[in-house]
Design a protein around this nucleic acid. Structure first.
Length: 597
DNA sequence: GCCGTTTTCGGCCCGACTGTTTTCAGTCG
């Protein structure tokens, strides 16, 4: 089996770590880190490109040398440079870099002078007082290392976006009441809507920074103060989340916000462009010959370097800068563009609300339609529906549609895709529904070939509409299934099927890179809540965040369509409630007629 | 190690805070 992109990325990261400890050229190290990121995010496998004899040096950041190393890794599962580095340094020392306060220089000293190779050995050396004697170290540093290792043991590395949001929003409402505060914005990966957040970066404008800093570190939930200077402070909250806060003057708000939103890679690229134009960008503004020319808003920062405004979700240095220069950035979808939701559950299976409650909640969100898609019988733990119970639910939906104004319920099912790719309900049952959402809920560990075939076969069913949570992963709990997603997306395009972007905070599945692929293949994505209660509709904001990270526009999203347009796209003869049929006839909506697939 | 709207060689983002120094290196974001 050839190496996957994730394997290649891990090798490049390891090489970068080891080179850094060796004291190699920092730009060479950066090249490996860049390459690790780029390969890790690539939406197509490097080995697949090689099979097609495509030139890997066409990938930005991959030159002749790295291209050769990728080929070496793919064909031999080894990398001779890494093998050589391993003979010079024990690979475990790279673990020491993860200890806060330890960088490559200190790790090198610890290894060469004290033969410290592991975190355990580091802890013993600190406890025995051997570290303070090293040049450049002192008693305080030794104590910090001791505490960092102790804290490291039970540290949660990243927080799911929705969890971080709870802490961020509470802290934000505390901070807006700080003395003299004008603006408070949570920046960083939170603002970029990454699926997980490592820490919170908060930018504040205020005339006087010091009272704000004092107010911040007095927050009830602050467990530990890591640093607190005049304009910048870092704390750890009781939940374990680190918060970095920066206070700047009003005139620097845009520059500071840009800087603290990142990503790091995006910022480096933008500053490089500035440098080429004889400008300097820092968190206070954009400068020419020491004179401020921009920085009060992010728009002004981008304008100063000849770029159009880049929304935070795009700032990953994945090609957005080239498009911003050409003024061809996508017009990203917004939460308000949604006209309905195509995946929701009720009390009939594992949901918590009745049909009526879900319908009324959807109406309150201002939507035209809501698809009811309870589980099918195979999912016994959720009391999945058999044909009889499903038929009863359909009757209830018909009755509600006749009664309720301003919202239409669609009759659907979240049907299990069985191991062989068949669907969990008979064809004649599925044929009666408005839409069929297919999902894998078992046998996650099948081989890539079998898992891919399973899904392709399911999509070939004439009534199949949407593939739910395509990757099957649960963030930080379950890895994604091994699936050839490129093939699945192409097949969806051929069959006229759609892919779901499931907005549940623990799923956020389709991944952003696959959203980009779907967009390129012309496959529409349905951003669905998978609501199990009326509260879950609010999760759609995270789904829309992920869609925006995947460069999706309103036109790329299935459920931004009106009911009439949706009906054409999903190609079902929906039995419309009598009052709507009457209106249709009056308006002579020819375009609503279903089209043959 | 990559890259080119000055360049195939000589560049490669920038500043705050801490601790160990006694003017700055290391780390972090």
């Amino acid at each position: 089996m050839p190496s996957h992109n994730a394997d290649i990325a891990a090798i490049f990261e390891k090489i970068a770590d080891l080179l850094e400890i060796e004291g190699a050229n920092p730009f060479r190290i950066r090249a490996y880190r860049n390459a690790a990121r780029i390969i890790g995010e690539l939406s197509v496998e490097a080995y697949a490109l090689m099979e097609k004899e495509e030139d890997l040096t066409g990938i930005p950041g991959i030159g002749r040398d790295l291209s050769a190393k990728i080929k070496e890794i793919v064909t031999t599962n080894r990398c001779s440079l890494l093998d050589r580095l391993r003979t010079e340094l024990p690979p475990a020392v790279t673990e020491l870099l993860k200890v806060p306060g330890l960088g490559p220089k200190r790790v090198r000293h610890l290894y060469h002078d004290l033969d410290v190779q592991t975190v355990e050995q580091l802890y013993c050396a600190a406890r025995d007082g051997r570290i303070r004697a090293l040049p450049g170290f002192g008693e305080k540093t030794e104590l910090n290392i001791l505490q960092a290792v102790e804290a490291h043991a039970d540290q949660v590395s990243r927080f799911k976006l929705a969890v971080a949001a709870q802490y961020a929003e509470a802290l934000r409402s505390y901070l807006v009441a700080a003395p003299g505060v004008m603006k408070v914005t949570v920046a960083g990966s939170y603002r970029r809507m990454r699926e997980t957040v490592g820490d919170l970066d908060i930018v504040i404008t205020a005339a006087e920074p010091r009272p704000v800093m004092q107010y911040f570190i007095s927050y009830d939930e602050v467990a530990e103060i890591l640093a607190a200077g005049g304009t910048r402070a870092s704390v750890i909250l009781t939940c374990g989340l680190q918060v970095d806060l920066r206070v700047v003057a009003e005139e620097s708000y845009g520059a500071a916000l840009h800087y603290f939103t990142g990503s790091k890679s995006h910022n480096i690229a933008v500053r490089y462009i500035a440098q080429k134009r004889g400008l300097k960008i820092n968190e206070y503004g954009v400068y020419r010959d020491g004179a401020r020319i921009a920085g009060e808003s992010e728009e002004s920062v981008y304008r100063a370097v000849g770029l159009s405004y880049i929304p935070p979700e795009l700032r990953e240095n994945r090609g957005e800068i080239v498009l911003a220069r050409a003024k061809r950035l996508p017009q990203l979808v917004e939460l308000g563009d949604l006209r309905g939701d195509l995946h929701a559950h009720t009390k009939a299976t594992d949901g918590h609300n009745t049909l009526r409650e879900m319908a009324l909640a959807a109406k309150r969100h201002g939507w035209e339609y809501l698809a009811i898609t309870d589980h099918s019988r195979q999912l016994a733990v959720a009391r999945g529906l058999d044909p009889l119970r499903l038929a009863r639910q359909c009757e209830e939906i018909d009755a509600l549609n006749e009664e309720l104004e301003g919202i239409i319920l669609l009759k659907g099912i979240e049907v299990d895709i069985l191991e062989d790719g068949s669907l969990d309900l008979p064809d004649h049952v599925l044929a009666k529904l408005d839409l069929v959402v297919g999902a894998v809920h078992s046998k996650f560990e099948l081989s890539r070939a079998r898992q891919t075939e399973r899904i392709l076969r399911a999509m070939q069913h004439p009534n199949f509409t949407i593939l739910a949570h395509p990757g099957g992963r649960l963030i930080q709990q379950r890895p994604p299934c091994d699936i050839d997603m490129a093939r699945v997306i192409r097949e969806a395009g051929r069959r006229g099927c759609f892919l779901e972007l499931n907005a549940q905070p623990e799923r956020l599945d389709l991944l952003d890179t696959y959203c980009q692929m779907a967009r390129e293949e012309g496959v529409l994505v349905s951003v669905n809540s998978d609501a199990h209660s009326t509260f879950d509709f609010d999760n759609l904001r995270f789904g829309i965040g992920q869609a925006r990270r995947g460069w999706l526009e309103k036109k790329n999203i299935l459920n931004t369509r009106s009911l009439g347009e949706l009906q054409i796209l999903i190609n079902r003869t929906m039995e419309r409630p009598a009052r709507l049929r009457h209106r249709d006839e009056q308006n002579n909506h020819d375009s609503l007629a279903p089209r043959a697939r």
